[in-house]
């Protein structure tokens, strides 16, 4: 007797919970949050394509679908860390197959060599190059993301990627940097334990 009652009791309980769950599943469905936007906001938007995707947004979509988070050299370690936090995965070192984290650069056109072919204008993902056919081109420095996509198309090789010049207000408090500029100065090494 107890056997049957045990089975019935559990069966009924299960039925009730099943009904409740079935009800809840329909009633309380939530739309998933736009994770792609959140990822995209973290990426540096250089649109350089080093990750193997045409632009930051496509890479964000790829990450949302489970791609690795360590494919963005311009973002470097900081971006990987933020992505790891967002995605709830472990931060990995940058995948060197995609390139190394390098200093920020800006494209500069050696204007006297430019022949006005507009190839770089077409290559620039953020429209940061001004110019017209057979007119000299120039880079709007503060719009340039340093992606260097314009360098290769240039038939006369007149585009250089130059490191951003430090200004007193963007200066990074690196005593080693001072020495580069003033070779005669000597830093008392700040022996920091990293």
């Amino acid at each position: 007797m107890s056997i049957v009652s045990a089975i019935i009791a559990l069966g009924v309980l299960a039925l009730i919970f099943g009904l409740v769950l079935g009800f809840a599943a329909v009633k309380f469905r939530v739309e998933s949050d736009p994770i792609v936007d959140q990822i995209d906001a973290i990426l540096p938007q250089t649109q350089c394509g080093q990750c193997g995707y045409p632009g930051c947004r496509p890479y964000a979509e790829a990450i949302a679908n489970g791609d690795e988070i360590n494919k963005c050299p311009p973002g470097g370690e900081a971006t990987i860390k933020e992505l790891a936090d967002l995605m709830g995965v472990e931060a990995k070192p940058l995948d060197s197959a995609h390139g190394e984290e390098a200093v920020k650069t800006v494209a500069v056109i050696r204007e006297d060599e430019c022949i006005g072919c507009t190839k770089c204008i077409q290559a620039c993902p953020v429209d940061a190059i001004l110019g017209a056919a057979k007119q000299m081109h120039t880079v709007i420095a503060h719009e340039c993301t340093g992606c260097d996509l314009c360098v290769e198309p240039c038939p006369v090789d007149c585009i250089d990627m130059v490191a951003e010049r430090p200004r007193p207000e963007t200066w990074q408090w690196d005593l080693g940097q001072i020495q580069q500029r003033h070779p005669e100065a000597q830093a008392i090494p700040v022996k920091m334990v990293e």
Binding site: D40, L43, P44, Q45, T46, Q47, G55, C56, R57, A78, P125, V126, D127, A128, H142, E143, T145, T170, Q172
Partner: peptide, 19 residues
């Protein structure tokens, strides 16, 4: 610098999307 970069990235994104 990060704040500056973020602001810059935002502009870059807008320009990229506009393009």
């Amino acid at each position: 610098n990060i704040a500056r970069e973020k602001a810059k990235a935002e502009i870059a994104r807008e320009r990229f999307e506009a393009r």
